[in-house]
Write a protein that binds this DNA or RNA. Structure first.
Lengths: 160, 160
DNA sequence: CTTCATGCAAAAGATTTGCAAGTTC
DNA sequence: GAACTTGCAAATCTTTTGCATGAAG
């Protein structure tokens, strides 16, 4: 990174870059151009994305960031609290950019793959309850509901 | 399968074999020796297991069931409701044998990997609530709490 | 200049597939 | 016999690593 970075980048992305830079400094690592490009690509993404889509995004954009660099950077971004590995029910590894977003969980359509986000405070409360019941200090959770969405129910063939 | 199958097998395993056989019949597939051996190995397992551990079990036991056959059989067992892919937070694909067991969710220690199972009816109720709010027909859910278990908290170095 | 980062290509794993030979109905 | 299975090896895919070269402090 030599010139003024992050031109044309929105506020959330800029904040993410700042947070990442702080995080890296703490470990004597550096915010390089390649890493910044990956942050920008991740922040531009919505919802869940498999790693190779992120790599494709990078190729389309500036062209910087090799596959290996992306693989090396994603765990750092996760540790820095910028993104999270997404629940995987067997398919390819995916991530979700969580920086600057409210916590939410997901409702996934098993037919069409549509993802609906929901927030429901009662879950958070009960989760703390369960953790404390077992003496655990709660750090995170994965919660995903799977079902058939209204559209797919409508287009469904009558039960055979 | 020619000789009397399932000798020395417990009731739950026998029921699983029966269910699987019915499932296979519906599709004009067959309950072969290799498939039965995989069912037995899966039913003998507790908790989460990566695929290669199941394969190792098979090698130890009767020696039948090649890697490819196991990979081909696991999705069938999942469809038959005998096991389920386990939540994966990034590592290797694992399964859990659910046949004949109460539904439960998991509390996982992020330090030592210990897994505690819990049942909490309130979650189930709220999940139905959320699904119906969005018009989804609920089919399944993945719910995992991540934290530090009591033992690991005790053995923890004082905060630096 | 010393340490860290990158890209490429090779390596390592995990999963899937093609196919000839063996089973089951 | 026709249809379904299996095991093996080869083919794919995904992710990780080694290393020489290029930046950053």
């Amino acid at each position: 990174m030599s010139e003024g970075r992050a031109e044309g980048v929105d506020g959330r992305t800029r904040e993410a870059l700042e947070r990442f830079e702080r995080f890296l400094h703490q470990r004597d690592l550096r915010l390089t151009e390649a890493r910044a490009a990956i942050v920008e690509a991740a922040l531009a993404r919505q919802g869940h994305y498999p790693i190779d889509e992120l790599i494709a995004d990078l190729k389309q954009r500036g062209i910087r960031g090799s596959k290996a660099t992306v693989y090396r950077t994603l765990p750092l971004l996760a540790e820095a609290g910028i993104l999270e590995p997404a629940i995987v029910a067997g398919d390819a590894r995916s991530y979700e950019t969580t920086f600057g977003r409210h916590h939410h969980d997901h409702l996934v359509c098993s037919r069409c793959g549509r993802v609906v986000e929901f927030e429901f405070e009662a879950f958070e409360i009960l989760q703390r309850e369960v953790a404390s019941r077992y003496g655990f200090r709660l750090e995170a959770h994965h919660h995903e509901l799977v079902g058939t969405c209204p559209d797919c129910q409508a287009g469904e063939p009558p039960r055979g």
